[in-house]
Design a protein around this nucleic acid. Structure first.
Length: 585
RNA sequence: CGGGGCGUGGCGCAAUGGCGGCGCACGUGCUUUGGGAGCACGAGGUUGUGGGUUCAAAUCCCACCGCCCCGACCA
């Protein structure tokens, strides 16, 4: 592709409202353009990267026997009503009516359709297991798009579905996908780590997320360097301290003006936060009012709380009047005297004697509150979030917290969808069973952004060869002084073109100054920059620069030809890679 | 949905009540080709939309729309 023909434009200035490096660079280098919030066009360069990422995923899916197909983006609403998700999912699911006034949805994912296909096509255990996948557009009307391609509303996802006759089959399929995902992210140049994740209210028997550590990430990961433990903070467990035994003291009210926060309370009474009990108030989707009690030095983990009370529809923070109506006072709250509430107490609180808790009266707390002496919990469970430095649940070493971006997930769904769709098979004995499903997703655009996050410097992008839109970027300098430059560059370009579509290169044939061409080449980020100039010709050929390391050498026309034809790849020296790794952090 | 910020040419920005500008990018011509070149000429705007105040509004007021950031949310 000649740059004089390419549909793109590089921006000299950073776009004002692009905060993430990947977003800034993809905009500046002319890979993507926004159309609206969370809606992006992929320009030709961006589309080529997307396609190469897609191809890596396709190869690894095919390698585990997963069959590519395609399912519709628009579904009749009945499909989603049958699974129940039409009613469970809020405005995130886009709905509309077709010309016949029929309810329709724009698909967020495709479990329902797979289950329907299974119900139509699978009758015997002999047809199982089967693995299916497609690359298809999803629409999720997210409350807030952010981070360029990281969180968008419309995106292409590879979603795969395993279909097995039983749990053991699902476990085996799940393992295959786990292995495929490890290979995919390695090929994409991403350091993805697998963490256990919440299965949510969709049930299922297990799920993992593949995460890339990134400060702009939306999830928090709990990691242990010592033993390799890695969980999403939503579900991560840590070892909690064993408070020293104390004689239980009598409760005693104490005036504590202006102490609506734990910090203020602890400071006012001159006690550690660990000697206080914190109350937070929620309303579950089914209407139950929930008081969650954790020690003052911990935070409530809403995912754990949701799972502890099996809250269908999740939790929302309670309103002040809802709290008051149940005899409690926000800022000075506790279950003491509370009515009509589900009291959920963190297990550490039950082991921590003589805590200061709210008196449910503005400006007052109560000393020496003990569970279950002073109030009776409805549920005792681990409902706190892991903290930086807490003791690892498996080895006791201090854990660390890191932000992460989810680049893929694997999920043991179970039979919810197949039961709803009537997707059953007959076993060897003629008995009928629901098919057991798993689902496995990878968002393409998000992966493209994460690759840029991991492979860029202050000058621009540095694509790994596996996903680069073109293998090389040819720059001709001084062509007006020396016709041999243009002649040589044109010849090399033609050689690459003749070597097949995969070997096509970018050729900067524009009448621009050398500075512009070099700057753009570094911004666009092809793995190898080939410079033809009077200087390079005098030195014996073409100057070859490795974009990622900056390593530079002059290669003969024959060597470059062998590279362009795909016969002899260029390799960066180990030393250059090591020094680039050190410099890049 | 709550909080904050922003909306002026393709991009980045200035103009705070009185003739809408600057840099880059863009077009034409000449010069220039190893690190975002120079000169000359030129094109490009209903200042997000609607309403209001005023002799006069990009500027002040109201409403709406859109975008970004934080939070809520995230099968």
């Amino acid at each position: 592709m000649r740059l004089s023909d390419l549909f793109f434009a590089t921006l000299r200035d950073d776009p004002a409202d692009a905060e993430m490096p990947s977003h800034r660079l993809l905009l500046r280098a002319g890979y993507v353009r926004p159309l609206g919030s969370g809606l992006y066009s992929l320009l030709p360069l961006g589309f080529r990267v997307n396609r190469r990422v897609e191809q890596v995923i396709r190869e690894e899916m095919d390698a585990i026997g997963c069959q590519e197909m395609e399912m519709p983006v628009v579904h009749p609403a009945e499909v989603w009503k049958a699974s129940g998700r039409y009613f469970k999912i809020g405005p995130e699911l886009a709905r509309f009516k077709d010309r016949g006034d029929r309810d329709m949805v724009i698909a967020m994912t495709h479990e329902e359709v797979v289950a329907i296909l299974l119900s139509e096509l699978v009758q015997s255990y002999r047809q199982l297991p089967v693995q299916l996948y497609h690359f298809q557009t999803k629409f999720r009307d997210e409350p807030r798009a952010r981070g360029g391609l990281i969180r968008v509303r419309e995106f292409v996802m590879k979603d795969a579905y395993s279909c097995d006759r039983d749990q053991a089959g699902l476990d085996a399929s799940y393992e295959k996908y786990r292995g495929a995902y490890v290979r995919i992210f390695e090929r994409l140049g991403l350091d993805a780590i697998m963490v256990r994740s919440d299965v949510g209210i969709m049930g299922g028997t297990g799920a993992h997320e593949f995460m890339v550590i990134n400060d702009f990430g939306e999830d928090t990961l709990v990691l242990c360097d010592a033993c390799g433990y890695a969980d999403n903070q939503q579900i991560a467990e840590v070892q909690k301290p064993s408070p020293e035994a104390e004689a239980l003291q009598a409760m005693e009210e104490v005036a504590t003006p202006d102490t609506t926060t734990i910090d203020a309370l602890a400071a006012f009474l001159d006690i550690p936060r660990s000697k206080t009990a914190k109350a937070t108030f929620f309303v579950a989707g089914d209407g139950r009012f929930v008081v969650a009690i954790v020690r003052g030095d911990y935070d409530v983990n809403e995912t754990k709380l949701t799972n502890a009370i099996k809250a269908v529809g999740g939790l929302r923070p309670a309103q002040l009047d809802e709290i008051k109506a149940r005899g409690m006072e926000a800022g000075y709250g506790s279950p003491l005297g509370a009515t009509d509430s589900l009291v959920v107490v963190d297990e550490l609180v039950t082991r921590s004697p003589n805590l200061v808790a709210g008196a449910n009266r503005v400006g007052w707390h109560v000393r020496n509150v003990n569970v279950p002496r002073d109030y009776e919990p409805d549920i005792v469970a681990d409902i706190t979030s892991a903290r930086e430095g807490d003791a690892c649940i498996t080895c006791g070493s201090p854990v660390k917290l890191r932000k992460g971006i989810e680049v893929g997930n694997i999920f043991k769904l179970g039979t919810d969808f197949t039961v709803a769709a009537g997707a059953e098979y007959l076993d060897e004995n003629g008995d009928r069973h629901p098919i057991v499903m798993g689902s496995y997703g990878i968002g393409l655009g998000r992966n493209v952004a994460c690759i840029v996050e991991a492979h860029h410097d202050e000058k621009g992008i540095a694509w790994p060869e596996e996903v680069a839109p073109y293998p090389a970027h040819l720059v001709a300098i001084g062509g007006n002084k020396d016709p041999q430059v243009v002649e040589t560059a044109e010849r090399l370009y033609a050689i690459a073109a003749a070597a097949g579509p995969d070997r096509e290169i970018l050729y900067d044939d524009r009448e621009e100054s050398p500075g512009v061409k070099f700057t753009d080449a570094e911004l666009l980020g092809m793995p190898w920059i080939l410079t033809v100039s009077p200087r390079s010709l005098a030195a014996g050929g073409v100057e070859v620069t490795h974009r990622a390391t900056g390593e530079r050498s002059v290669r003969s026309i024959d060597e470059v030809t062998a590279f362009l034809e795909g016969r002899e790849p260029f390799e960066a020296s180990a030393a250059a890679i090591a020094s680039a790794a050190t410099a890049g952090g």
